[in-house]
């Protein structure tokens, strides 16, 4: 009885020891590969950044008038964006190679899943980028037009438009990623409907007098300007 238990115990310890002995070199290899990859990624990033600076890439983007990239400025220069993208691509590849050293089966499953999910991620990223650009463009359009129409709350209007587009964009991106499922759709519908209802109530009831006063002022102003014949052209 005792000898049997002792045998089982020693077998278990031997199995764990063997598993650990098999796993540790892989882990070490993963760490070495990761460190090596990060160093290589930094070097590649620096080379790309310097090369793009050398050919005055940011100026060229300006001159070509690429609004998609130019819209990110001055927060992110187009060259910095490309360099950072290359950095993270190399690190991700390194991570996959490292995991392969750890466990080949796990990597193949991971890579398979990752590639299956990749189109969703790409679509979501595209939706996010387009949504951000559209929201910035529309926000600026509304801001400038509202100021030219002499609407005092121009900035508020612009922010409202920006966040409406952003909320719509995030909801669409999450749907592409398959996160949240119906909850996102229902949540978005409630949020969007709530915003529209709030605005309608505010204009229809709360701000009725303010709006009418504003229209009166506008009509008065137009009339006065016509009388004074202040022609700009």
């Amino acid at each position: 009885m005792w000898s049997h238990a002792n045998e089982v115990l020693s077998n278990a310890v031997a199995r764990v020891g063997t598993a650990a002995a098999n796993f540790l070199p892989g882990l070490l290899a993963l760490l070495i590969i990761l460190v090596f990859t990060v160093v290589v990624a930094f070097i590649v990033q620096a080379i790309i950044r310097r090369a793009l600076k050398g050919i005055r890439f940011d100026d060229r983007v300006h001159r070509w008038g690429l609004p998609v990239l130019a819209e990110w400025e001055p927060a992110r220069k187009p060259s910095a964006l490309i360099a950072r993208l290359s950095f993270w691509t190399i690190v991700t590849l390194g991570l996959l190679v490292g995991i392969a050293a750890l466990d080949a089966n796990l990597t193949s499953v991971l890579v398979l899943r990752a590639f299956e999910y990749l189109p969703n991620v790409a679509a979501a990223a595209m939706v996010l980028i387009c949504g951000l650009l559209v929201s910035r463009f529309l926000a600026r359009s509304v801001l400038i037009s509202a100021v030219n129409m002499q609407i005092q709350s121009a900035r508020l209007l612009s922010l409202g438009v920006k966040w409406l587009v952003m909320v719509l964009t995030f909801a669409m991106a999450l749907e592409h990623l398959g996160i949240g499922g119906q909850i996102v759709q229902v949540g978005f519908a409630i949020l969007f409907g709530g915003i529209v209802l709030t605005l309608a109530l505010a204009v229809g009831l709360g701000s009725k007098e303010m709006v009418s006063r504003s229209w009166e002022r506008q009509a008065d102003k137009t009339e006065r300007e016509t009388e004074e014949q202040f022609h700009h052209l």
């Binding site: 801001l143 400038i144 509202a146 100021v147 030219n148 002499q150 005092q152 121009a154 900035r155």
Partner: peptide
């Protein structure tokens, strides 16, 4: 109008 523009633009 100018002052409104300065505050917002």
């Amino acid at each position: 109008s100018f002052q409104l523009g300065y505050r917002n633009l």
